[in-house]
Design a protein around this nucleic acid. Structure first.
Length: 496
RNA sequence: GGUCAUGUGGCCGAGUGGUGAGGCAUAGGUCUGCAAAACCUUAUACGGCGGUUCAAUUCCGUCCAUGACCUCCA
């Protein structure tokens, strides 16, 4: 049994994580709506839950990680002409809705790969589960909590709130909602303003439509997650994740639907990642401050000073706790870029380190290494505090470099400590945090060429032919390769 | 307007009732043919005002500011 504690939005406190079934975890995370390109904000959520998934695996759990693809589209705005997002955009781009879905699904998957996110165990689509959604709506109606009007079906929130704690997750009270819910045209169909749609009748021109007991239409925007999470994880599962902005009404509605159908709040632990902000404002379409992931990778956006490698972005995101907001800024991204390079270089150095029997073992340093590494576990167990793990790593980076060219030159690590450090670094840096070498793998051929150039330069320098040696370094720099003369006489290089 | 968050040094950010997380930047130094890297040193940071306390950035109150949700939203 691990000592993992997670912050549960549902109880508003950190709780010890105890899975429903020993050694197994069921986790559902709200996935992307593939009506457009994912942006930096989306990436944060998916990277956050990827690390959570990875950590659960690292702890030895068998995890079923379900992340949906929303491809059925929801209505643009309740009460306006029922027009789902996906079909609307398709008309603009003159594409079939499913063509659009395919395009953005592919792009999404490509971006997830760039970030080194693991694939979920199951990635169900909303359109592939229309039947399950209809069945669920039928059950809700049969239970007396749904009602059909003009081909649409609504959830009776007021009735639900009379019997169950509606609004517990988001901290909302029905009375307040009554006062603040906006006046919208189609409200007259609903019994109460705060009722939400389970099924929407499709107007004749609507492209995406399915037959149902209530006529042609499409599912409401909360029912898909309820239907798919129930299907693949059961009526009650362990973790439900998503962005904080989904708490209300999305997750609140999911809870209501599941309580009626399955007699359970669907998940025991509700985890929510915070937003990425840009100049203090949430990144989002409505604010017109979106930086898409392809923009991030290419630097092609007025807000970007340069392109950023996916790993830089991943590292940037993991340097903060997932429940805090994270403010975008070029300066911060550039800092992350440099920090990651230093971290990775030291990690490679650590891999090459050996315990030197001829040198002294410093007990203070031994202790530091051991406790800093051991704390990785504690920090992750404390609601996935990746920021603190990385902070400890950097303290170790400093020491690792010191063994080579600093204060610790005359000392060594014991074989046990060295091996433990190497293992912990590998496990956490690569497996849990999911970071990879930015320069990519296998610079083998390049390595050979570099060896040659380095050798020529070495000979030139030996002859004090600095004109040649500088020319080699200068011209390599021009094509993005930086040579470094290490203190111990070796020459290393890094790719920009 | 309602509800809930947040406010940390040039930037991004951890965190804690009492010993200055960490990254980047800055300044000085070591090393070096030069450069880079690395290492050493380098900040009297916790929105304002009260209160509790031996002690508050950390708890409480209040004010100010910003943001999120209340509508699609990671």
């Amino acid at each position: 049994m691990s000592n993992l504690k997670v912050y549960n939005s549902y109880s508003r406190q950190k709780e010890t994580f105890v899975p429903l079934t020993a050694h197994h975890v069921g986790m559902y995370v709200c996935g992307p709506t593939v009506s457009g390109e994912s942006h930096l904000g989306h990436a944060r959520g998916f990277i956050t839950f990827d690390v959570i998934y990875r950590y659960l695996l690292y702890l030895g759990y068998k995890v079923r990680y379900v992340r949906n693809i929303t491809d059925a589209g929801h209505f643009e705005e309740e009460g306006r002409e029922a027009e789902d997002k996906i079909s609307k955009k398709a008309v603009i781009e003159k594409m079939e809705p499913m063509e659009l879905v395919q395009k953005y699904s592919n792009l999404f998957h490509w971006a997830m790969k760039q970030f080194n996110n693991l694939d979920p165990s199951i990635e169900p689509t909303a359109t592939g589960h229309i039947i399950e959604q209809i069945e669920m709506i039928k059950k809700i109606i049969a239970a007396g909590y749904g009602y059909a009007v003009n081909g649409s079906v609504y959830f009776d929130v007021k009735k639900y709130a009379d019997h169950y704690p509606y609004g517990k997750l988001s901290g909302r009270k029905l009375d307040e909602l009554l006062e603040t819910t906006r006046e919208l045209e189609s409200q007259e169909e609903k019994r109460n303003r705060q009722d939400f749609a389970l099924w929407k009748s499709a107007s004749p021109g609507h492209i995406m439509r399915w037959n149902s007991p209530w006529g042609d239409g499409f599912p409401g925007w909360h029912i898909e997650c309820s239907a798919m999470s129930t299907k693949y994880l059961g009526t009650e599962f362990d973790i439900h994740g998503g962005g904080m902005d989904l708490m209300f009404p999305h997750h609140e509605s999911e809870i209501a639907q599941s309580v009626i159908c399955n007699h359970h709040v669907p998940a025991r632990y509700w985890l929510h990642n915070n937003m990425i902000t840009i100049n203090g404002k949430k990144m989002g379409k409505s604010y017109n401050n979106v930086i898409t992931l392809t923009d991030m990778f290419s630097g092609n956006n007025p807000l970007l000073a340069q392109a950023y490698h996916p790993m830089t972005i991943r590292f940037f995101i993991l340097q903060t706790q997932y429940r805090s907001t994270l403010d975008f800024g070029n300066e911060a991204l550039q800092a992350a870029e440099k920090g990651l390079t230093r971290l990775w270089d030291a990690y490679l150095e650590l891999g090459k380190m050996t315990s030197d029997p001829g040198k002294l073992i410093n007990p203070v340093i031994e202790n530091q290494f051991n406790s800093l590494c051991r704390e990785f576990d504690d920090f992750m167990n404390d609601d996935f505090n990746t920021a603190k793990v990385l902070a400890n790593m950097f303290v170790l980076v400093n020491h690792i470099n010191s063994f080579r060219s600093g204060d610790l030159e005359k000392t060594t690590l014991s074989p046990e400590t060295l091996s433990y450090t190497q293992t912990q670094f590998k496990n956490y840096l690569e497996d849990v945090l999911g970071l990879t070498n930015r320069t990519g793998t296998g610079p083998d051929r390049l390595g050979s060429i570099m060896d040659l150039l380095i050798e020529i330069r070495r000979e030139a320098r030996a002859k004090k032919d600095y004109q040649t040696s500088d020319r080699i370094r200068k011209q390599l720099l021009e094509i993005g390769i930086l040579l470094k003369d290490e203190k111990d006489g070796r020459v290393s290089f890094t790719l920009e």
